[in-house]
Nucleic acid binder design. Sequence first.
DNA 1: CAATAATTTCACAAAATCATCACAATCATT
DNA 2: AATGATTGTGATGATTTTGTGAAATTATTG
Lengths: 223, 223
Amino acid sequence: MATILIVDDEKEMRELLRLYLEPEGFTCIEAEDGEAGLAEFGRKHVDLILLDIMMPKLDGYRFCMHVRERSQVPIIFLTARSDEWDRVYGLQIGADDYIVKPFSPNEVVARVHAVLRRTKGTDVTTSYEAGPIVVDEKARKVIVNGKPVVLTLKEFELLVLFVKHRGQVFTREQLLDRVWGIHYVGSTRTVDTHIKTLRIKLGEAGQLIQTVWGVGYKFDETI
Amino acid sequence: MATILIVDDEKEMRELLRLYLEPEGFTCIEAEDGEAGLAEFGRKHVDLILLDIMMPKLDGYRFCMHVRERSQVPIIFLTARSDEWDRVYGLQIGADDYIVKPFSPNEVVARVHAVLRRTKGTDVTTSYEAGPIVVDEKARKVIVNGKPVVLTLKEFELLVLFVKHRGQVFTREQLLDRVWGIHYVGSTRTVDTHIKTLRIKLGEAGQLIQTVWGVGYKFDETI
DNA sequence: CAATAATTTCACAAAATCATCACAATCATT
DNA sequence: AATGATTGTGATGATTTTGTGAAATTATTG
């Protein structure tokens, strides 16, 4: 799941945030000031940054600007007072949200989810090729043998998952988890129907979605 | 490309502007007050000046007058309140444009391009073509099939975003973030209404704004 | 301050997609 | 070949999403 970089000079605060976020499945990286944060950010892939404004050495404002020079990773500011936010916002510094201390666990988790949801799909590389199929995730467009194919939401997301993990077998449960979301309740046979329509729309290339009997489905260019 | 002198007493503001402008290919020089600004202006070739009004030592008004004694270099004022502008304008001080804080990256970059274009005619374009649609961001004018179309603010900004990122799908939340601002509260259905009016005003070309079912909208010339 | 324009919200209609079922087809095992 | 489990498929009603006109609210302009 997503990796979150927590940049705050207070050890207690970092541990508290970690305590909220890790049970939700997030991986947390801690940094105690802006400099250390930039170092971590350069070293590891980060999906979101929780950033304190008041910090020694390199403060939140400037940390943010440095990050923005090379990435559009979502940033949530942690502020002690709401009027600090005015400054961030006034500077249009490129923050995605802010949370005023003290905050509740729910609030933090909700904001993180919200920001990730909002910024999802704004990454750079989005085009995948698999045999005759070209999938452009950003444009949500699929081209098979040079001809565009119109897919529904579920069909498209299934295909993206398959193409991103070609060769890997997914059970119906796994597909439901990853395309429908973990809170989906209902028959696993729903997957079959979408596989069917997807295969039809892909034409010849539909054969690349293979049934793994007794297990599930996989996408494979080699037979 | 063009060199821009940024004169502002706030370090953050200067760095922020630099952050917006350098990715566009501009070279930036910073000065923290009017005196330093004049010194820089004398030392280097400058194509445009971004000038804060409120500054210690030598304020924006007088800085501007000094510059005007020896150059017609374009100057864009940065003002905290729009009524400060009245004074600049009232003094016939020779400014070319002004930007009210807080401003968005898009706005700054657009104004800079626009002023340079206006004063020199050699700067990169601010107009975008997409099929039958021509969007002139500087003039805030839209021409479809040779005929001008009058758009409201939100409609225009939606269209600019779409045309600049043609092919990319935006969720309603992303559109609200980028056109309305991240602190907008209200229904995401508002977007739908503006899409509707925009499509109507664009006539036939309105079809280029495509609905991506279950996701959002995109602007696409191809099918 | 009135008039006008722009924006937002609302309610309902229209459209697209989705989930489910029943039955047919296929597969693995004996 | 028979059997039971699994998968394919067409049809269909339910659900979700989007389009749209009109009213309400807000901002702008003279």
